[in-house]
Structures are given as C-alpha cells and as structure tokens.
Amino acid sequence: MQIWARELGLSQIGVSGIDLSSAEPGLQAWLDAGFHGSMAYMPSHGLKRARPAELQAGTVSVITARMDYLPLDTPTDWQARESARSLQPGEAVVSLYARGRDYHKVLRSRLQKLQHRIAQAIGPFGHRVFTDSAPVLEAELATRSGLGWRGKHTLVLSREAGSMFFLGELFVDFALPETPAVAAHCGQCTACMDLCPTQAIVGPYRLDARRCISYLTIEHAGPIDEALRPLVGNRIYGCDDCQLACPWNKYAQISREPDWLAREGLGAASIADLLTWSEADFLRRTEGSAIRRIGHKRWQRNVALAAGNALASTAVSAAERLALCQALTALAQHPDAVVREQVAWSLARAQ
C-alpha cells in the first residue's frame, strides 16, 4: 500500500486505530480555555473529533497520509529567505502552503484514488476521505500512526520531512495492522515558541488560536485586535514563523507536485498592488486556491492591515508610501464596516 501511495504522489502513509480516548481530556481543556476563539464549530463538535466511529459509522482503522508541499522551485536556503521577507514591509507574505492549488482538492483526489486501488485488490469496502474538512483529530491520528511526533507548536514533525506537509485520512471499515508511533525529538528546543510574533504558543503543545496570525487572517471574520495588528506585520494569509524557526525543517522535502507552484500574486507581490484587486480580480486569481474561501472582504481587511504596518515602517520608500496611501484612500468609503475601520486605522499609521 505504501508503494501505491507513492505512485499517487503521497509522501508517506500510516495506519492508526480509532481509540483516541486518551486525547479527549486535552481537547476538552483546550476548548474550556476558549483557545478556539470564534471557531464555533470546534465546541459544537466537541469530543466527536476524538471518536472516528462517530464521524463515520463502522470505521475500524484509519489510513493517514502525509503529502509534502514545498514546490519544485524552492531554493536550498528557503528558511532564511522566507524569514527575511518580514523585513520587507511593502511586500505581502502568503503562507507557503497556500500559494498554489487548494490542498483540500489535491489531497482528497489522491486519497480517493488510493481507496480505489485498495478496492481493486480486496473488493468494495466502507470508507470516507477527510482532508481538514471535518472534525478529525488529524495530528493525533498522524502521530499515532508514525507519521511524526507533535511539536511544541502543535504541528506534526518528522525527522525526514520537518513539518512542511499536509495531512489527510482515509477511514475504512476493516482492520489493518497499526504502524508504530515514533519518538519525539524536540528536546529542550523552544525556537518555535520564542519566535512566534504574537506569543500564541502559550506553553509547549498549547496554542491559543486567538493570538495566532494564521487564525486571525483566515478563520477570524471580524476586526483584528488592535494590540495584535502591529505584530501581524506583512502577513496577509497565514503565518509560517514557527515552522521557519524549527531546526527540523532543514529536512523538509521538495515536492514534485506542480500544483504547489506559486500562482502570480501569491508568491511575491507588493501590498499596494494587492489593495487594488477588485472582487473579480480576487476571484479570478484565487480560483482553485484555498485563499478564495476567506472571501474578498476579509482579504481586503488583511491587506489593508499590512499596508498600515508598512506605512509605520521607516523601511518603506517614498514611492511605496504614496502608492499605499492612494490605494487605502480609494477604500476609505468601503461598504463593509470591518474593512472601512481597518483602512482608517492603517491610514492613521502614516501620520
């Protein structure tokens, strides 16, 4: 089955059982602390996330999959280059995983093809594919099945692949031998915790999503806390800082998947240019991208926030400053109150 998976472009697969009861207290404590923020679906699903058989009746085993996502054109010093982009305030930064095609679509397709291969070998069976699309404890299943260990930033880490990969699952209604878990190798390192711009990693293995830039720019729909806005910097969709700091990512694997190549405007673009995107531009340029799901208004809020941080920086040229102010002024009467307030805050940063 591992050979089939690799032929389909998956980097690694493992097998987990479905008894995740030992993970339930930690999940409940995280929810009780309110760390899920405005993601109301988290508490509404509750402990169902830790009970695979409740998500898909008849599930006996879970096949987990890793799919590396660093694109083919990634330079060897990518961590240093990506880290340096925070020092270029006029340039917008999109998280590495979101610069190409929507991973939900790509990974789901590969897992469905894997299911078909298995069915050809053993006959029809009950199944369901998940790619971050339902209340599944992905990291828990991945660590139990040997894809890696849970890093202090809460992401799954692999000695062979760092953390730059997607996770997906194939729930099946027949028993498979479980693959053994691997030992954790974070040791005393706290690089991810130390570097987090907003200190969202409040303790080892504890993430307060309400402070996380990925949550703020993707999941959170309302105004972003003013105290956190300057810390967001030039990140307009997601944040890779904890991964860039992780020493294990020197082993991150380059993928041969063409779908991960960055689209125009998502790999490198000026904040001023992105502010001028109309809704039609946004929909056209993000077609088939994970970014499209946040919608144009939230995109404008994020880019406007980054523009305000750029205007407060002395590293922005006079020409860039003028372009940013003009683009923001054009949005000053935006019909959406959240965007309008963000634009006003950002323009005030130019004073």
Rank of each mutant, 00 (worst) to 15 (best):
P75G: 04
D77C: 05
Q79W: 08
A80Q: 14
A80T: 06
A80E: 14
R81K: 13
S83F: 09
Q88T: 13
V93R: 08
S95P: 04
Y97M: 08
A98H: 01
R99F: 12
R99Y: 13
G100A: 08
G100S: 10
Y103R: 02
V106F: 02
L107E: 06
H116C: 10
H116D: 13
H116V: 07
H116L: 14
I118P: 11
Q120F: 04
Q120A: 11
A121F: 07
I122V: 15
G123C: 10
P124A: 13
P124R: 04
P124L: 05
H127D: 10
R128P: 12
V129S: 14
V129A: 12
F130E: 10
D132H: 02
S133C: 09
A134Q: 02
V136H: 01
E138D: 15
L141S: 07
A142E: 04
T143R: 05
T143G: 06
R144E: 05
S145A: 15
W149S: 12
G151N: 12
K152H: 13
H153L: 03
T154Q: 07
V156D: 08
E160I: 07
M164A: 14
F165C: 04
F165T: 02
F165N: 04
E169L: 00
E169N: 01
L170Q: 08
F171M: 09
F171I: 04
D173Y: 04
